[in-house]
Amino acid sequence: MADTGQRRPARRPRRTRTATVVALVLALAATLGACGVTRGGDDPDNRRLRMMIPNSPGGGYDLTGRAAAQVMEEDDLTGRFEITNVIGASGTVAMQRLLNERGADDLVMLMGLGVVGATYTNDSAARVSKATPIARLVEEQEGLLVPADSPFKTVDDLVTAWKKDPRKVTVGGGSSPGGPDHLFPMQLAQTLGIDPKDVNYIAYDGGGPLTTALLGEKIQVGTSGLGEFQGQIDDGSLRVLAVSGDERLEGIDAPTLTESGIDLVFTNWRGLLAPPGIDDATRDYLTELVTEMHDTPEWREALKRNGWIDAFATGEEFGTFLTEQDERVDSTLKELGLS
């Protein structure tokens, strides 16, 4: 009896507390709702945009995307960027999500050559050609790396040995099939008249393991962007036989492939896409935004800091390039039976 008598008053404060909590939640919801109204507002200098990045923080796409967003925010070209890393299947998951957001006027996605390849190797219907191209931003050259005391002194040495017995030459790269480090040796083989199926490519999980394999001479040739190898190149434990762009790379003492008589220019590029079905005004707005971003000294500083090559292209030019890359990757991977 005394028990129940004591319990009753104890209950009352709890009910008032519940009421307070409910009120708080409602107030919070109201504030958030109000935020929702201002979001995507009409002032073009203060729009909130979303950016999707198709791999984990710290990766190449992530560094490029965050650098671009930072420049746009700090130069007040637009409002804040909400950056999401959508991880999965080398970018296929993010690509699918971009296509699902048909017509969304506040979304861009950073992507690049690797995402193009991934949509094929993962057998996904979410092709890059279905999205709205906004701009190509940067590119990185690939390099042909060998250990210091490799018998290959020049590209010619490699080509001779490779043509003689393609399966004897082990090539390692830091990306899985469909990624830039894989596409580069395959297209190189195609150019040289070697059947890509005969290329003995070993996929390593990024630059670290690839460095290990090269230093330990487990593979004969490595194909990769050179940024992660600067230390080993400088101290002479790795050598660069050639770089893949159409100009030599600053700070790397190696010829281009074309200089060595091989007709191939290959770059790992990165750019921005928007969802399909956006109206012209949105498309123009986004194009202008990245063009302004590209013209800032901060962006030039970011390019220099990261060793990226400026490869800016928008509109028709980027659109054509994208289609061309899509077809090229498709044909390479088809020949390998991977798409």
Binding site: A89, N122, D123, S176
Partner: peptide, 16 residues
């Protein structure tokens, strides 16, 4: 798909 072939992914890139 670590081996280059999709295994037990049931066609979903989310399992790749």
């Amino acid at each position: 798909t670590s081996t280059g072939q999709a295994r037990l992914t049931f066609g979903s890139p989310l399992l790749a």
